[in-house]
């Protein structure tokens, strides 16, 4: 059973036990435009909540993606290197960025559910 939560910086987290799969929201990709490059965090790196974890580059600009929670990077999405445009076509599905082992579940308390995120981007 997974729960999806959102940050005010437009990242999503699908939480399954103590592992969160992280990506950027469909709203975020629509604002960024055509994604041409994604830089992902190194495996095993421990990210602090709100730290720059990844970079998504459109034709126009580079934007940071922040770690929504503190934890160790367990896995990164190999498909984004060869097909960065996946971020535009399937932001909240195939274009997940990385999986992180959640160090402190209390950090999830400040995140939004889908209804709250929808209101945030309305």
């Amino acid at each position: 059973m997974t729960t999806t939560l959102y940050t005010s910086d437009h990242e999503w987290l699908a939480i399954d036990g103590d592992v969160a799969t992280v990506g950027i929201t469909d709203y975020a990709q629509s604002q960024l435009g055509d994604v041409v490059f994604v830089e992902l965090p190194k495996l095993g790196r421990t990210l602090k909540k709100a730290e720059a974890a990844a970079v998504v580059e459109s034709v126009k600009a580079a934007s940071d993606v922040y770690a929504p929670v503190t934890g160790e990077v367990l896995e990164t999405n190999p498909d984004l290197a060869s097909e960065p445009a996946l971020v535009n076509s399937d932001a909240q599905g195939k274009a997940w960025f990385f999986k992180i082992k959640i160090a402190d579940k209390s950090e999830l308390g400040g995140l939004m559910d889908e209804a709250a995120y929808k209101a945030h981007t309305a």
Partner: peptide
């Protein structure tokens, strides 16, 4: 800065 087609297209 762009239209619905997007910068690439």
């Amino acid at each position: 800065v762009q239209y619905p087609a997007g910068v690439l297209k």
